[in-house]
């Protein structure tokens, strides 16, 4: 092994870092897929029960146009839901951190709402907003909004007392304290809330599509299951995973950019 490393001109610790971060998890996942593939063949499991990864892959390739067509509404609704939730969530957190009255009035209720299994409220949104995209979008906003509020507020609150005293000594206004101390300090918290919210936003849309929809990946899953097309279900889920990863990755990129730009 050492010889190979030396021939390739790679330092041992590089290999170690690389293997820990990428090679090991990817290798493990591949091993599981291989095992899965093997098990389905060896025990000749029916495709309706559990299709082999290779079968899912070929189904994915042949249905790609359909999958992409259904991915579009799911994607834009969850991204839009996420963006609206981010604006509202950061806004509400800012309000709660700025106003004592608002905080004592609203925050306990926000926490209480947190505890409700929010999925249970999905049918209500359809009753209120109909079967169009509005109800799915609203539900996606509703469900992804809470992690952002809670994380942002924690970040705005967690500021070092001594920094606040410095601001007071410098006669900084409340707005300046917010903009130049609290908000930059909260940025990492905001982004951790937003990363959680990406998943929640997708869940919101999918649940909406399960209940009522003529399009979208959630609809496709439901449709495929009515046809007992398990390979298509799993192919759709694969697309969903890829979309979720890209979505999360974009937010992580935005975080990197903001943090190098504004620090924190």
């Amino acid at each position: 092994m050492k010889l190979i490393h030396r021939l390739l001109g790679i330092e041992a610790q590089d290999i170690d870092g690389l293997s820990r971060q990428i090679l090991m998890p990817v290798g493990f996942a591949l091993a599981v897929l291989l095992l899965w593939e093997g098990v389905t063949h060896v025990f000749s499991i029916k495709e309706v029960l559990l299709p082999a990864p290779s079968a899912i892959w070929s189904r994915l390739q042949e249905s790609l146009p359909v999958l992409l067509q259904h991915a579009w509404p799911t994607a834009w609704e969850s991204v839009a839901g996420f963006l609206i939730a981010s604006v509202l969530g950061i806004g509400l957190a800012a309000l709660l951190s700025a106003s004592h009255t608002m905080r004592s009035m609203l925050y306990p209720n926000v926490v209480l709402f947190q505890l409700i299994p929010k999925i249970a409220l999905a049918p209500l949104f359809i009753v209120w907003l109909g079967i169009g995209f509005e109800s799915r979008l609203a539900f996606s906003v509703f469900i992804s909004f809470f992690p952002i509020v809670v994380a942002t507020l924690a970040g705005l609150d967690n500021v070092d007392k001594s920094l606040l005293r410095l601001c007071r000594a410098l006669t900084a206004s409340n707005w300046q304290v917010f903009a130049s101390v609290r908000l930059p300090h909260a940025l990492p918290y905001v982004f951790s809330g937003m990363k959680i919210a990406t998943t929640f936003a997708i869940i919101g849309v999918i649940v909406g599509e399960f209940i009522t929809s003529q399009a979208g990946l959630g609809y496709l899953i439901l449709f495929a299951s009515s046809q007992a097309d398990t390979a298509l279900i799993l192919a759709t889920i694969t697309v969903l995973c890829v979309f979720g990863l890209v979505f999360y990755g974009l937010v992580a990129l935005a975080e990197r950019w903001t943090r190098t730009r504004f620090g924190a």
Partner: peptide, 24 residues
């Protein structure tokens, strides 16, 4: 004012920290 701990803004450069009172 100089306090017991430096209370610098961790996300700002040294120069920006020194200029912080001017900005606020």
């Amino acid at each position: 004012y100089v306090f017991q701990d430096p209370t610098l803004l961790p996300w700002k450069s040294v120069l920006d920290n020194v200029l912080f009172p001017i900005r606020t």
